[in-house]
Nucleic acid binder design. Sequence first.
DNA 1: CCGGACTCCTGGTTGC
DNA 2: TGCAACCAGGAGTCCG
Length: 305
Amino acid sequence: MPELPEVEVVRAGLAPAATGATVDRVEVLEPRSLRRHDGPSEDFVERLTGATLATPERRGKFLWVPIRTSAVESAATALVVHLGMSGQVLLRGRDAPRDRLTRILIDVTHPDAGPLRVDFVDQRIFGSMALDDLVPAADEPAQRIPSRVAHIARDPLDPLFDDRRFLAALARKDTTIKRALLDQTLISGIGNIYADEALWAARVHYDQPTRSLTRARAATLLAEIRLVLGKALAEGGTSFDYQYVNVNGASGYFSQSLNAYGQTGLPCPRCGRPIVRESFMNRGSHFCAYCQRIRLGRAATGSSS
DNA sequence: CCGGACTCCTGGTTGC
DNA sequence: TGCAACCAGGAGTCCG
């Protein structure tokens, strides 16, 4: 389940091979992988073929590669990639065998690395590729971002992520904390795994109302989010068997470091009591019922400003 | 504004 | 042994 660290590993791995490369040929094996592309497969293929790729960028779990075509001087369009639940981007030699679940093949030539193949592999087809227009970012017009990604909040590893603004927005929201962490328009890049891990680290119950969370605890949670994401990033992303493979085809190995996610029945590394799993938002929430209890402060009805 | 239900999707696992 | 039901969930949409 690729979340921010996994997507960043893919972006960083793809960057040296993609930057400055030109697209020779595009083959779409599974049109459903273009669900988010406006237009038919032919349009995707025609517009991408012959384009020059710029350095891949990322916000949250969205990855995009600005492209330049002969017709347009500066990049006005980007190849947008979302890995969904099971997507992988694999960098291969031109004659390497195809993975059975390959959905899109992009042959590129890099000035230094020579001919390469970028494979988009995706078992469940929740992921997608699309071409999209770049538009100025709302909070920094000098930055450009695909229009379909514009509504996504900056992620906590983004230098322009505004901590004060996030904490204020959290305090204003009438919802519960895990729901807020998974709301990509509030903070991006966090999925079910790192939400559970960060909540465990900060000792916050997943269903704690955001308005009853003190600012200090919210700030602690944000710090733990950064620690968890940073640690996963440093270790190359979480991996579960073949579901996540980085851009060179090597699995990550952070899953051994998980404290809560997927640890149902195992002892909480902090207190030894068993981790429990509850169904929430159509997914599993893993937590320690002792360490992570809902704390209803007295300010639950207070309003900010 | 909020939450719940639903959709997309496949393959590994579970249960009969 | 065989097969169907179930489960995993990121993001978007729709509805109450």
